[in-house]
Design a protein around this nucleic acid. Structure first.
Length: 103
DNA sequence: AGATTGACCGTGT
DNA sequence: GACACGGCCAATC
């Protein structure tokens, strides 16, 4: 810290908070938007540490394949349910990034 | 300070 | 489409 006053995590949180309802973003995409194209893993770790579910809709973040990975508030099942309620298009157990990917 | 881990991704077979 | 391998990042032990 000190140059931009915000850490990588804060940057990620901000980006995730910008995801509109009914849309999802991939870790890789967030990583790109955060500045580091290859920081997808770090993004996931920040999500795991994140406690502000209402401030940061981390449930709208899925893998590049559209598959739901983890969720620190009830597991992928709760995550999938939330996405379904938000109108995310599902294809089996995966999200249809073709239609619901945030871009 | 060094090693390990984790909600990943891209590529090759 | 599924499985295996390697690479990269940041946080944690």
């Amino acid at each position: 810290m000190n140059d931009s006053e915000i850490s990588f995590s804060e940057r990620v949180y901000t980006i995730v908070a910008q995801i509109p309802c009914g849309k999802v973003a991939t870790y890789g995409d967030i990583a790109k938007r955060s500045g580091n194209v290859k920081a997808a893993r770090a993004v996931g770790m920040c999500m795991n540490k994140n406690r502000d579910t209402y401030r940061v809709p981390c449930h709208r973040v899925v893998a590049s394949t559209g598959e739901l990975t983890g969720y620190a508030f009830g597991g992928v099942e709760a995550k999938r349910k939330k996405l379904l309620e938000e109108g995310i298009v599902f294809v089996g157990d995966r999200v249809d990034l073709k239609k619901s990917e945030w871009k």
